[in-house]
């Protein structure tokens, strides 16, 4: 409870502006790996545009910080929580489960990862019956498979589950 109350819109605004300013500086440094100058021979170097674009980004974040300090932006006066506790729980669970989903895709393959993701997500957020959730979690990956691998012929990552699909392919292309 208390954490979400402490993160006010005001604090989030200045924190994000500072982070973006730091990112802009990092981008400027990274751009400078290539030539960022303009010379008569070859005009702009490979790093010229990225460098000045990130310099522009930096200037914009500085302006945002100045507006914040002078209390000219609506966010600089807003002491309400950035996110309320209940919504935070939903958002956090969603983000974490998505990250785990993509991690799992690399290892377990997309189809089995989706089964677990859907089963978890529906169980957590919906009040549907176990039967509905089981059927739904199994049918969605099957439809995904049919749509991508059969209709569109785009192979999706299968990770360690790949050998399981050999008989399916044999059946599909026989």
């Amino acid at each position: 409870m208390s954490i979400t109350n402490k993160i006010t819109v005001k604090r989030a605004e200045i924190a994000v502006a500072v982070i973006l300013a730091l990112c802009s500086i990092a981008l400027m440094i990274k751009s400078a790996e290539n030539r960022i100058t303009w010379n008569a021979e070859e005009n702009m170097g490979a790093g010229f545009l990225p460098f000045y674009l990130s310099l522009g980004m930096f200037i914009c974040t500085v302006l945002t910080i100045i507006k914040f300090v002078l209390k000219r932006s609506p966010q600089s006066k807003d002491d309400s929580p950035f996110i309320d506790a209940e919504a935070f729980k939903y958002i956090a669970v969603t983000i974490i489960s998505l990250v785990i989903l993509v991690l799992a895709i690399g290892y377990l393959g997309i189809y089995f990862s989706l089964i677990f993701f859907l089963a978890f997500y529906l169980r957590y957020f919906s009040s549907k019956s176990v039967l509905f959730i089981s059927v739904f979690s199994l049918i969605t990956p099957v439809l995904t498979f049919l749509f991508f691998e059969w209709l569109l012929k785009i192979p999706l990552p299968q990770g360690i589950s790949e050998p399981l699909f050999y008989p399916v392919y044999d059946f599909m292309y026989s």
């Binding site: 192979p155 399981l164 392919y169 044999d170």
Partner: peptide
Amino acid sequence: VIVSLSLVAVSSVSSAKPFSPKKP
């Protein structure tokens, strides 16, 4: 489901034949 699928897969992989692609 996983166990039954993997049994099918193992049985089809182990048979020795000249190579031909198993997937696209």
